[in-house]
């Protein structure tokens, strides 16, 4: 099957060496700001309608047993995405380093 490639997320207990680059890198409870969506227009529009707007806060929540799909908390709701999709949502770091505790 021709699958969309995505890089693996770090092991849950390892500290980040770099700030998370995509939603896939977010660990449970971690929060970041969405920068852009790298997906075809119709898909990204649907994601935007669900709250994934560039500049909005996204937090990683539960995962299905096995780790895929994952649930993300965005704009007041929880939305499940497959990892291959989550890897296409790019992040920018939070403005302040300790702002992650506010939710």
């Amino acid at each position: 099957m021709a699958e969309i490639e995505f890089h693996r997320s770090p092991a849950p207990d390892m500290p980040h060496t770099r700030p998370p680059a995509t939603l896939l890198d977010l660990r449970k409870g971690e929060e970041a700001i969405l920068d852009r969506i790298d997906l075809p227009d119709d898909v990204s529009l649907r994601l935007m309608e669900l709250g994934f707007l560039p500049g909005s806060r996204v937090a990683a929540s539960f995962r299905a047993p096995g780790g895929d799909p994952r649930v993300f908390r965005v704009d007041g709701t929880e939305v499940a995405l497959r990892c291959e999709t989550a890897a296409r949502l790019h992040l920018r770091p939070l403005p302040k380093p300790d702002a992650a505790s506010a939710t």
Partner: peptide
């Protein structure tokens, strides 16, 4: 093509 799975919980 694989279509993304997007489901609101």
């Amino acid at each position: 093509e694989r279509t993304p799975f997007v489901l609101e919980m």
